Computed example of a mutant assay.
Amino acid sequence: MPRYVALLRAVNVGGTGKLPMTELKAMCVEEGFGDVQTYIASGNVVFSSKLGAAKVKAALEKRLHAYAGKPVGVVVRSAGEIAAVLKANPFPKAPPNYTVAIFLDDPPAKDALKDIKGQQDEQVRIGKREIYVAYGGGMGRSKLKIPAAANGTARNINTIAKLAKMAAEDAST
C-alpha cells in the first residue's frame, strides 16, 4: 500500500491553527489510513493509503475544515516524492536547519522568482513542485517574500529527512 506524507499549512506555528497531533492522527485513522505517525507539532503526518494522492488531500482537507471551521491547506507527497525532494536540495552545503523546501501543489512557474522581495543573503531555487530557500542568516531575521510560495508550506531539510525516513520504513516490520 502506498506511503504518503501530508504537510499541513499554518498549523501550530506562531500561535495559529491549533491542532493537537493526537487529533490529526485520529482524523487519519478515521479516514482509513494505516500506519499513521505524526512528527513534531507543526502538522506532519506519515501514513499508508490505498487512495491516490489527490483523494488523500481532498479527504484530509475536508476533515480539517470541519475541525477548524476554516480551510486548512494540505500538501501530499508520496514516499518516493519526499525522498526526491530531499535528494534534489540544491544547497547541500548550507545548514539543514537554515534550508527549507516550500511545498506547492503545482509546479512553480518558470518566472516564479521574479517577484521576490527583501532578498538579502538568501539563495532561492525552483524545484519540481517546491521552492528551495537557503537562509544565510537564518529565517528569523529574513525579510524574504516569495509571492509564488504564498499558498505553500515550508519544512526545513532536517524535517524533510526525518519524514522521508519515516515514509520509507516498512510499517509492517
Score class of each variant (00 low, 15 high):
residue 3 R to I: 13
residue 32 G to A: 11
residue 40 I to S: 04
residue 127 G to T: 04
residue 71 P to C: 04
residue 159 T to Y: 02
residue 19 L to A: 04
residue 45 V to L: 10
residue 69 G to S: 01
residue 34 G to E: 12
residue 33 F to Q: 04
residue 136 G to E: 06
residue 60 L to M: 14
residue 63 R to H: 01
residue 110 K to V: 02
residue 172 S to E: 14
residue 153 T to W: 07
residue 88 A to C: 01
residue 61 E to P: 09
residue 75 V to R: 03
residue 79 A to N: 04
residue 145 K to I: 15
residue 146 I to A: 04
residue 123 Q to G: 02
residue 101 A to G: 03
residue 37 Q to N: 10
residue 122 E to K: 11
residue 158 N to Q: 12
residue 9 R to Q: 05
residue 124 V to G: 00
residue 168 A to G: 15
residue 6 A to S: 13
residue 68 A to N: 03
residue 170 D to S: 13
residue 50 K to M: 06
residue 30 E to R: 15
residue 159 T to G: 07
residue 131 I to P: 09
residue 173 T to R: 15
residue 55 K to C: 02
residue 116 I to R: 10
residue 169 E to K: 15
residue 154 A to G: 05
residue 70 K to E: 14
residue 25 K to L: 11
residue 10 A to E: 11
residue 129 R to T: 14
residue 134 A to N: 08
residue 72 V to A: 00
residue 11 V to A: 09
residue 106 D to A: 10
residue 162 K to S: 12
residue 5 V to G: 03
residue 68 A to W: 01
residue 107 P to Y: 00
residue 55 K to H: 09
residue 70 K to T: 07
residue 62 K to T: 15
residue 44 N to M: 07
residue 107 P to N: 00
residue 147 P to M: 10
residue 158 N to T: 14
residue 8 L to I: 12
residue 172 S to V: 13
residue 30 E to I: 08
residue 31 E to I: 03
residue 27 M to W: 04
residue 141 R to C: 05
residue 72 V to Y: 01
residue 173 T to I: 15
residue 135 Y to W: 07
residue 122 E to V: 10
residue 127 G to Q: 07
residue 79 A to D: 12
residue 13 V to F: 08
residue 111 D to M: 03
residue 9 R to W: 09
residue 159 T to S: 13
residue 65 H to I: 00
residue 95 P to A: 09
residue 134 A to M: 10
residue 5 V to S: 06
residue 131 I to W: 05
residue 38 T to L: 11
residue 63 R to Q: 10
residue 7 L to K: 04
residue 158 N to Y: 04
residue 121 D to K: 10
residue 69 G to H: 02
residue 107 P to W: 01
residue 70 K to D: 00
residue 158 N to H: 11
residue 10 A to H: 05
residue 160 I to V: 15
residue 38 T to N: 11
residue 104 L to E: 01
residue 111 D to T: 12
residue 144 L to A: 07
residue 160 I to C: 09
residue 47 F to E: 04
residue 119 Q to D: 00
residue 1 M to R: 12
residue 163 L to R: 06
residue 54 A to E: 14
residue 104 L to Y: 00
residue 18 K to L: 07
residue 40 I to P: 01
residue 125 R to N: 06
residue 142 S to P: 08
residue 68 A to F: 11
residue 88 A to Q: 06
residue 147 P to C: 08
residue 113 L to P: 08
residue 48 S to L: 14
residue 147 P to H: 00
residue 4 Y to M: 11
residue 29 V to G: 04
